[in-house]
């Protein structure tokens, strides 16, 4: 067990897997000598050279298409988008080819590849660098969408992604990158579709995603002083989604709030809410609540930016109200 930052833990997974499996290569803008905008590939160029750390021009659709072809023909590409907002330029390749090809080929073609990039509102990055797209991608069959929140999880889940046969979209929240946490030694993997109970409690269930898991934990600390015990759940992957763990928690608490920085309509919270409404109806002691980012393009101004995402104080207040309802 060692203490690593989120970025270093993810990089260790990539480094160790590249050393283990020569089919893995990385593509992206500035991920070669520069080591990635967020240091995601720092030091790997020196180790593995320009073929396996392949800098690309600014042409997302082109290099995603290239990677899809490479995956079909036996390589394992990792595309590093820096800000994941730029993934949108490659949506045709992702949804029509990458996600559908295994099905269209009756499984004769495999699609082992990982698309990764940073998500989330923070750091005055403005609206082209602030998106969280897990809800959009979770709506597409054939994709796996993972949103690790701890250094240990990002390492284990990145490994799982690199060892599987399916296309994986790995979304890393900007404000989690410098978080430190314990990372197990050795060759471990973390499965998809298995939520983590980040904190046990009995009065209300808070489901976060990415950064809001951390915010829910902080809100839970505040509420604990008032005797309110919040159970915080980190789904870790939004597709597949581990609804069973959430249902089990709601069975215990009877109250559910989904906290999400991203937009609310047709979003992650709507999906969790609908499934719990269907399968956990008789366990609900109060209506399901959502707390989400404002349904608006993200402003550049730091005070405004802070205002449009759920703060720890707002989460604590909303959970407190839900418990009293």
């Amino acid at each position: 067990m060692k203490e690593l930052t989120y970025t270093v833990a993810a990089r260790e997974a990539l480094d160790e897997e590249m050393a283990r499996d020569p089919r893995i290569f990385v593509m992206g803008e500035g991920i070669g000598k520069r080591g990635g905008n967020f240091n995601t590939t720092l030091g790997l160029y020196e180790k593995y050279g320009p073929t396996r750390l392949c800098d690309t021009p600014i042409s997302e659709r082109g290099f995603v298409g290239l990677a899809v072809g490479a995956a079909m023909s036996g390589s394992i590409p990792v595309i590093d988008f820096m800000m994941v907002d730029f993934i949108l330029d490659a949506m045709g390749e992702i949804i029509n080819q990458m996600a559908k090809m295994q099905y269209m080929s009756s499984g004769r073609l495999r699609m082992p590849m990982v698309l990764r990039g940073c998500i989330g509102i923070g750091g005055a990055a403005a609206t082209h660098h602030s998106g969280s797209y897990y809800s959009i991608f979770s709506n597409i069959p054939g994709l796996r969408v993972i949103v690790p929140t701890t250094p240990a999880d990002v390492k284990g889940m990145f490994r799982t992604a690199l060892r599987g046969n399916d296309p994986v979209i790995m979304l890393e929240h900007k404000n989690l990158l410098s978080n430190k946490g314990p990372v197990p030694d050795g060759d471990y993997t973390t499965p998809f579709g298995q939520a983590r109970i980040a904190r046990a409690g009995k009065h209300v269930t808070a489901v976060g995603v990415a950064l809001t898991v951390q915010k829910c934990l902080q809100a839970a600390d505040q509420l604990a002083k008032q005797g309110i015990e919040v159970e915080v759940i980190d789904p870790r992957s939004t597709s597949p989604l581990d609804i069973a763990t959430i249902l089990q928690s709601v069975k215990k608490t009877g109250r559910l709030m989904i906290v999400d920085d991203a937009f609310e309509p047709c979003g992650f919270g709507a999906e969790v809410s609908a499934q719990v409404g269907t399968h956990g109806f008789d366990d609900l002691d109060a209506p399901i609540r959502r707390l989400s980012g404002a349904f608006a393009p993200t402003p550049y101004s730091p005070p405004l930016e802070n205002e449009i995402v759920p703060s720890v104080e707002r989460i604590a207040a909303a959970l407190g109200e839900l418990v009293k309802e």
Binding site: D283, L284, A286
Partner: peptide, 26 residues
Amino acid sequence: SPRALRVANELGVDWQKLTGSGTSGR
């Protein structure tokens, strides 16, 4: 609430006579 209704049926409590203690009155 659906949960309270389920528990009322399980325990045989006549909930029609109860009043809700929460802020919603439920």
